[in-house]
Design a protein around this nucleic acid. Structure first.
Lengths: 352, 352
DNA sequence: ATTAGCACTCGACAGGATAGAGTGCTAATA
DNA sequence: TATTAGCACTCTATCCTGTCGAGTGCTAAT
């Protein structure tokens, strides 16, 4: 009847390591952990009764809970959190021993950045055996390398922007008056000359303004700028790649009525994932959201391990793994971290 | 004990209409149809006993079956087939009364054909409330409008192909020797002049060969051709768009153990869908595959309603709806047909 | 050809009994 | 004081059972 009132105190070493073992046991087996079978399985030098006492304490401290009276214990979100945090110390984020082929060959030849991201997302989901999600880089931070204008129809022209990353952005632009092919050629030269080396956000913020105030001989400068401004203005929304939902459907506990609902709302309302990743993007490094830590309340029983990635030293996007609360964090955290680093390296190298 | 031996004979009018009603009833309710409740619900002028006799006959003819003795009847694949075929007569494929906005506005401004297809696939899944699949057009049939070569790095150049449909295909090409920007400009002009108006397959088959045998002054013709040939050679695989898998997960019968397996293998092995759509593409018009008619034996209890679409009068792609065998064919068939027509019209208009 | 009547079948559901794993508590022990 | 053995209790999962309802096939009457 008298449950511990103290809900916050540091764990003793023994308690800590037992808690870790319990969480691990639950993660791998998925069944409530009972005192007797637990001490037996791990050949611990204590009796089940002692274990019960310890578990009782851990429950009072809200690291564990019981699905119902007289069942074994399962971790609370706080328990998972403790587990993940204590793992972090030992991760060192090394994936050296794992062999992940990032198919650099295939990637090098791609100009459609989206396809590269598809490949990476697929790889991450395959490797983690959960679902992988990725937010493409903020367009505003990509650096212009070259601008090419190509005539299409009477007053339609194609605006092609080659970025340092080797990505090509194409956009149709409507112009009111007719332009000759020669005009466009000159526009291209002029725009490339002026915009090359700048990031989109700089161009939007200051460059356009400055250029409009400059004199330029021989080019219908204003028209060129109009076209560029029009093409760049509708800033490309970062796209969301998802892969491996099927992995989640293979996990028995995810297919139960209410969980399935969670999943569906995640897939349908991809703003949920967008928001989570956008938050991840605000800080450098790994971020883990466990269970209720995901504030979107349609989502129940899920965790997200995500990390931001950079171009140079600008945080531009995020990538992560979505799985059940009972996720194999020990494997997933280093994997996500590694993936983030690879993406950063890749993008940074490309944009040099 | 003595079941009808004759398994093939034309249905009488009454039998036919009762069969249709039974299939319809099962499609909408999902529960085996029993004699008593059926005659009651439809206020038929026969007794349950008579209905039982009719059902007995229909079962002998393999249009119906029982999930177990003393349960109501459910349609066999043959039963669904009969239902669908008899509906076909009355469809007239008119969707006039339905309001489907194909967001032509949004589509007009897109140059990435893939995005257009995403929109259409999403629309089709939303409207049908099942999963929608679409195979993008065969690249080989797109007609070249303009070729632009843009320098990237030392010996990397960007090959941009603008097609009549307004779609842009970009490809990185590696060249061995250095080329100047002027070279590329001339190459672009030359290639545009020679290739414009031809479809990729024509270019691959004959044009290249012809050009190589022609004389041309002032351009390093061979190099230009090398680049183009390299870029065009790796023919773009048609891509597969899938949307609305979540709709299938909402259908109770699809979430049962073995069915879920079906679904997973479909999502994972998208070659299955590719194959089915490729077959659809071989003929003009609607094609329905019911249950076991889908030969891929991982897939159970699913049906596919699909149609091919054209550019001009060339069959170039396919689009369809994947759902449970117990699908609302009456709604889906005209919808898919309509979608196919819209896509055809759209692509054809664009490529003029 | 249709129908009424009847015996029978099967699935779904509810209730009850049982086994197994687990707990909390108390008293004994090292 | 921390640990343990023992015990009564609790809860789930499972299996068995009986009952209800909807459905069927068959036969004989209309």
């Amino acid at each position: 009847m008298s449950r511990e009132i103290i809900k916050e105190r540091a764990l003793e070493d023994r308690e800590a390591s037992i808690l870790q073992a319990i969480v691990y046991e639950y993660i791998t087996k998925g069944k409530p952990v009972g005192s007797r079978s637990f001490v037996h399985k791990y050949s611990l030098a204590v009796s089940p009764a002692t274990m019960r006492n310890i578990m009782y304490d851990l429950e009072g401290l809200e690291y564990l809970k019981q699905p119902h009276t007289s069942a074994g214990r399962i971790p609370t979100d706080k328990g998972y959190r403790f587990y993940v945090d204590s793992l972090l110390d030992s991760y060192e984020f090394s994936m050296k021993d794992r062999e992940i082929s990032v198919k650099e060959e295939a990637i090098k030849r791609e100009v459609q950045l989206d396809k590269i991201f598809s490949i990476i997302t697929k790889m991450l989901s395959t490797e983690s055996r959960y679902a992988a999600v990725m937010l493409t880089p903020r367009f505003d931070f990509t650096v212009v390398k070259r601008v090419v204008l190509v005539p299409m129809d009477n007053n339609e022209i194609l605006f092609i922007l080659v970025t340092r990353t080797g990505v090509v952005l194409t956009k149709k632009v409507l112009v009111s008056s007719n332009v000759t092919q020669d005009d466009l050629y000159n526009f291209s030269k002029y725009l490339t000359g002026e915009l090359c080396g700048y990031a989109i956000y700089e161009i939007k913020d200051t460059i356009f303004e400055r250029l409009r105030n400059e004199k330029e001989a021989g080019v219908n400068k204003d028209m060129a700028l109009d076209i560029a401004q029009l093409a760049v203005s509708e800033s490309e929304e970062p796209r969301l790649h998802i892969d491996g939902i099927e992995n989640l459907l293979k996990i028995p506990e995810m297919v139960e009525e209410d969980r399935l609902h969670s999943l569906l709302s995640i897939i349908e309302e991809n703003n949920i994932l967008r928001r989570i990743l956008a938050r991840t993007m605000e800080n450098e490094g790994i971020s883990t959201l466990i269970g209720e830590e995901i504030e979107e309340d349609q989502v129940k029983g899920c965790s997200m391990v995500s990390t931001s990635y950079k171009i140079g030293n600008k945080l531009v996007g995020a990538v992560g793994v979505l799985g059940p609360t009972r996720m194999d964090y020990e494997k997933v955290v280093p994997l996500v971290d590694y993936t983030g680093r690879v993406v950063t390296e890749l993008l940074t190298k490309m944009s040099k």
